[in-house]
Simulated assay, not measured.
Amino acid sequence: MTKKYLPILQVGDVLLSPDIITERFCCDLDACHGICCVEGDAGAPVTLDEIAQIEDAVDTVWNDLSAQAQAVIDKQGVAYPDRDGDLVTSIVGGKDCVFTCYEDGCCLCALEKAWRAGRLTDFCKPISCALYPIREKTFGNGLVGLNYNRWDVCRDAVKKGKELDLPVYKFLKGPLIKRFGEEWYKELEEMAASIEL
């Protein structure tokens, strides 16, 4: 059976890789232990607004952070421009996000952990983290592009997504609605339903 290739899709001002509809994904924290917060050569992409929210949250999560992470934040702050000039969360030792914390051998986000515990109310984590494995790119003409990012550390999530038959866009329904709104997501669902796989 040959794979069907679809053109770039568009919902409102958002261009989408068709993989967001056709591929399956579901995080499997028991299998991967949160390695996506550790691996890589830069932190998570953040906006200026998110940096301000993270700075407001630092005192709340400070004691959840490692001494090394605290030292990095003291020295350079919660974010820095990466080699492409994009703002990303600060990292420790060239890999761990400064907001990683470990529990039972699993890497968790200290910001999200505090939010789930009710210690933070307005901010959970950067939208780039919530949207993963989707990566967002802003274009100069007002368009936003969404791509499905394939990463070998997420192979267990791909496996679990296939087992559950869960498309990427359905796995990320909450973050997509938070980022683009209910109406936009309904239009995405309608488009997905019209595509024959």
Rank of each mutant, 00 (worst) to 15 (best):
M1I: 14
I8C: 10
V11T: 11
L15C: 08
D19A: 15
C26S: 12
A31F: 01
C36W: 07
G40D: 00
G43W: 02
A44L: 12
L48N: 05
D49A: 12
Q53C: 11
Q53R: 12
I54K: 00
V58A: 01
A69Y: 02
A71P: 02
Y80H: 13
R83I: 12
G85C: 10
T89G: 05
S90C: 07
G93S: 07
G94L: 05
G94I: 00
V98C: 12
V98A: 09
Y102D: 06
E103A: 05
C106Q: 07
C109N: 03
L111V: 00
E112Y: 04
W115D: 04
W115E: 04
R116S: 09
L131M: 13
Y132N: 05
Y132C: 07
Y132D: 09
P133I: 10
P133C: 10
R135V: 15
K137M: 11
G140Q: 12
G142A: 02
V144C: 01
N149T: 13
R150N: 01
D152A: 13
R155M: 07
A157K: 02
V158N: 03
G161Q: 07
E163G: 12
L166N: 08
F180M: 03
F180T: 05
E183V: 12
Y185F: 15
E189Y: 04
E190D: 09
M191I: 14
E196P: 03
E196Q: 10
